[in-house]
Design a protein around this nucleic acid. Structure first.
Ligand SMILES: [Mn+2]
Ligand SMILES: [Mn+2]
Ligand SMILES: [Zn+2]
Ligand SMILES: [Zn+2]
Lengths: 143, 143
DNA sequence: ATTATCTTTGCAACTTAGTTGCAATATTTT
DNA sequence: AAAATATTGCAACTAAGTTGCAAAGATAAT
């Protein structure tokens, strides 16, 4: 059993989810890639396993509910997901960090270290959540 | 000719676009509502005119290209559009402001007065554009 | 190890968003 | 009024996402 396999297994147990090939494969994929992934990305990168598209959709939804993955703001296009920090749970997500999308390699990355900038809410408005997406060139593509 | 009609007409002329019922209706709708609108919103709010869905899609695309409308980051769900400031043109958009989505009335608003917060780009990364979406209760719904 | 219970999967069918080609129509220019 | 050009509507298509349900699989109890 590889390292990623056992980490993934632990994560499933921790959240009371059954160990299934699709769930393990999806988790391992997220651990290997360190970027946000769309349903389509996952389908392509697990082609040989031939999981049903619906199963992958359901896996993503389940993981989001449990606090294993969070949705990442990818304007235009499909929903993307990324691994949550340990703070997240079934009850609440705590993924208030900046995200970065590279215009060259298209990767979307969580900048866990960059907190969301403080926001001057206009008077009368009550801000509950915020999301901040930067776009440009990632370290790799910037050269 | 109402005020909105003539404003809309001017805008079409200014961008070298022909005056058509669909384009006028869509522009007037944007001037009346002051919120971002999706294709679906527009289709519903112009039902009696019975414009073809495809025509509405093309109208939105054209307006975006010309710098009349800009896309608004609405995570999940369909693309939304809002009126651009006068600075925008065929050649470049200049809509770097904060957007606000009300969790109650679902309206998405341009906060033209709130500029984007300065962003500490992580080293190695080159930031080119950014988008900041606040969510919560709008002034109306906050009561 | 077998069985019972409860979860997850795969399939088929459906919905909604968005795109493309093309002929008919409307708008602008001459 | 006719010619030139831009826009529309239709039909057909692709892609994303959802739902119901029966069969298969995982875990827990015996
Ligand atoms: Mn993230
Ligand atoms: Mn705006
Ligand atoms: Zn890159
Ligand atoms: Zn509101």
């Amino acid at each position: 059993m590889t390292h990623l396999e056992s980490t993934s297994l632990d994560l499933l147990k921790l959240h009371g989810l059954r160990k299934t090939p699709c769930r393990l494969a999806v988790l391992e994929l997220f651990f290997r890639e360190r970027a946000a992934l769309s349903h389509q990305n996952i389908e392509q990168q697990t082609q040989n396993s031939n999981f049903d598209r619906v199963t992958i959709y359901r896996t993503l939804t389940t993981f989001e509910e449990k606090g294993i993955l969070h949705r990442v703001p990818d304007l235009e296009g499909q929903a993307k997901y990324a691994l949550c920090s340990e703070k997240c749970s079934e009850h609440a997500h705590h993924d208030a960090h900046v995200h970065f999308k590279c215009q060259t390699c298209e990767k979307v990355l969580c900048m866990e270290d960059i907190p969301l900038p403080e926001t001057a809410a206009p008077k009368g408005y009550q801000v509950k959540t915020a999301s901040f997406l930067l776009e440009g060139l990632c370290a790799e593509c910037n050269g």
